[in-house]
Design a protein around this nucleic acid. Structure first.
Lengths: 161, 161
DNA sequence: ATTTATGCAAATCGTTTGCAAACCT
DNA sequence: AGGTTTGCAAACGATTTGCATAAAT
């Protein structure tokens, strides 16, 4: 694992290093008896290249295009082994991003209710900590096993105002 | 508006008063040229009776049942006028709850990734405030117009562990 | 050679919509 | 009556899956 610093939000290439990511993905996949194929590599690179969660549609329109059924199937596998996370917000299409486990980049989402676009942002450590403390309490009260939290800032982006 | 205290999470009946809610809903609907019909009244009561967001499926299975197409259509209207909020989490079905505007109950959601169930919880005022302050900053930086925030605690509920 | 992944087309499933009947004012 | 709401059935759109072909080990 790499230092848990705040990343410049500009994709993961350069910040963590693609080779590094590919290596981890390979490990996570093989641990589940899955192969790290060319197609999956391309998916991971597309996700790493983006500074925000991407839609499957945008992958289909990539160059070269990634067929939607393949994208969905591979994203499911990658999600299961912990490489990607599926982001559901207000609109009906899901978006995908590399998991925080993989990028060491804990962040949150800014969601536009107009066009559905999702951007990343972070909050100061101190706030995260007090939040986590309270969240742990709530979980304990309810007998929940916590796997994480999600914080979305909902609003209208500059383009949609 | 009623005092912005933390509510006991046990539905809204008794806490705010159904009559009170119906009155506000009537106002919000008429403001949009909509009627407050028997069917819509039943929907609002079903939502008020629940202490968590409900699925449309559960409304269909209510007694008497609310046909899904009617539920969807009315929930859309109620959402548009600000009476209900649509909650999207990890599973593919949407859930609905009375809007915070209506209940004066700002709360968050605890989401089980196993069965999809969604429960309510609150965090202390102080945490909300520092969060809001940071969120306002982020919004300002990006030119977003903020309409609210969402905080989900994600995990596995007692029944699914 | 054998097992696994790919990608087209068909199937699913939650949600939306057309339309005729029921309802409200 | 005149316009709105209801609810069945059909339509939609995002996602999943069957299956024959291609790729990987």
């Amino acid at each position: 694992m790499r230092p848990p610093t705040a990343w410049p939000s500009a994709g993961t290439i350069g910040a963590v290093g693609l080779d590094d990511i590919h290596e981890q993905v390979g490990t996570l996949l093989s641990r589940d008896g899955q192969r790290y194929t060319t197609e999956r590599r391309r998916l991971v690179e597309a996700l790493a290249r983006s500074d925000r969660p991407v839609t499957v549609e945008s992958l289909r329109d990539a160059d070269p295009p990634i067929p939607m059924s393949s994208a969905y199937r591979n994203l499911s596998v990658l999600e299961r082994v912990g490489v990607v996370e599926r982001v559901r917000t207000t609109d009906d299409r899901a978006r995908f991003e590399l998991s925080e486990q993989l990028t060491d980049h804990h962040h949150h989402h800014l969601v536009c209710t107009g066009c559905g676009v999702v951007e990343d942002f972070t909050v100061p450590e101190a706030i995260e900590r007090s939040l986590d403390r309270r969240l742990a309490e709530v979980a304990a009260e309810r007998g929940f096993e916590v796997t994480g939290h999600r914080l979305d800032l909902v609003g209208t982006c500059a383009a949609c105002r």
